[in-house]
Structures are given as C-alpha cells and as structure tokens.
Design a protein around this nucleic acid. Structure first.
Lengths: 113, 113
DNA sequence: TATAGTAGTTACCTGCAGGTAAGTAGTTAC
DNA sequence: GTAACTACTTACCTGCAGGTAACTACTATA
C-alpha cells in the first residue's frame, strides 16, 4: 500500500467514529438547537416540531452517553430539566457550521435552481 | 417568535437538506474516497473493505442523482467505469475536513481516554 | 475449457430506526 | 375535581437501510 492509500484508509476509519455519533435523523438537529442556549425538554420539542417525545428522550440519552450534552434537573415546581452542551458538544460548532454552509450551497445548486 | 428563535428555525431547516444527502452509512465514506482522486468501482470497493457491491452501486447512483459525483464509462477492454467528484462534490471538502477533525477530537476525548 | 478480472444486478431476508398512541407522576390553577 | 403544565415512559408497529448470496455478461489469458 502506498502512502496516499494509507492516508485514505486512515481518514475512512476516522469518518466511521464521527459518523457513529452524528448518524441519525435527530442528533445534529438537537445539538444545533442547543447551540442557541440551554434548553428544556419542551423547548427542544417546540423547536424541532416533528420530533416525538420518545425519539427526543432516546436521542438525548444517547448524546448524554457520548458526553455531548449534560442533563441538569432543577427542583423547581414543576420540576424542570435543562439540557446543555458539554465542551465536547461545543467543539462540534465548526463542524455544524460547515455542514450548514454546505447545506445552503447544496440547496442553491440543486433544490433552488 | 423572536429573532434568535427564527434563526434557530432556519438553521434547523438547512440542516435537514444537508442531512438528507449525507445521511447513511456509506455516502460520506464514498465521497471521502473520491477526494483522493477518481476511482473505479473495484477500487472504491477495495478502499471501503466491508461495503457490498449492492450498497456501493446503490449509493453511487444516489450520489450521481444528487450531482455529487459523475460516472464515466471507458470503452477499454475490459470496460472500465470511473467515478469522480463534481464541483458540488468537491465543495464538500471543507465540511468533510471538519467532520474528520471533529472525529479525531472525539476519539481523543472518549474512545482514546 | 476454465479461471480471473472488469462492473455490476437480482432476489431474498433481518433488524432496527423511527413513528403512534396512550399512560405515568407530580404540581398548580380554576 | 378536573384541566393543564412539567417531563417523560411504555407498548406496539412498520418500513426501509443495509446485509448475503448467487447470478449476469463480456474479455483475456493459461
């Protein structure tokens, strides 16, 4: 295997790691919503209008397990729960920005033509 | 709806467009492989070792439909087919780079700790 | 004549991502 | 006492993403 091929192989492996975390219909949207500030369950649900409580709950758990977000329970009445990005979650910012800016570019080229 | 919320809504919509194209286990790896130069069917299959010919064929078609790659048939013997990135495909480069660099960061923080 | 290389296709199957609907549990307001 | 708010959970179901294996069709080479 030459050097170019082995660099390619390495990048392909890395892409797997990243994809495993960001894969799925809802994870990036959830993280994106939280880049606008900490939010409660119901707030996220109102932002992402067509997510079901089941999916939101499930994906929030997965993101918490991957140390992307934290869950904080406040003993107010009624009980409120706030989700916020961890430093690792905040480190997705540049990636998210690039995905969004490519999304705009793509829309302009394909959808909006 | 205040301004922050409407920006959030807008970004959430954009993320949908992008996700629709990059969603799935194989699309980004295929595009990534092609950033290292035009490749033939068999070459991609050898790069991405555990993709089946069915999935590769199917995803190449989808990427072609989205104008991310082009398929060129050469009338050599035996027939060869080369896949290459379109300008739109090449415009994914920065996004891919950011995904990869976040992938490395993530691995360092979680997997490799 | 048979093996290997080109690039796929086709039929079939399975598991899980994601959807739907209803239920839970506590507090507050009317 | 009942409706409405908080934040979920649970059970059930469906469709499709993705996997497996075998087959196609053509050429070259031994």
């Amino acid at each position: 295997m030459n050097q170019k091929e082995s660099v390619c192989q390495h990048k392909l492996l890395i892409s797997r790691d990243a994809l495993e975390v960001i894969q799925g219909k809802w994870r990036l949207p959830i993280v994106l919503a939280l880049t606008f500030g900490d939010k409660r369950f119901g707030e996220i649900q109102r932002d992402i209008v067509d997510i079901s409580p089941k999916m939101l709950s499930q994906e929030l758990k997965a993101l918490e397990e991957n140390k992307i977000i934290t869950r904080t329970l406040y003993d107010s009445m009624p009980v409120t729960v706030e989700y916020s990005l961890t430093p690792l979650g905040r480190s997705m910012r540049k990636m998210l920005d690039e995905i969004l800016s490519w999304g705009i570019h793509f829309r302009k080229e394909i959808v909006g033509k």
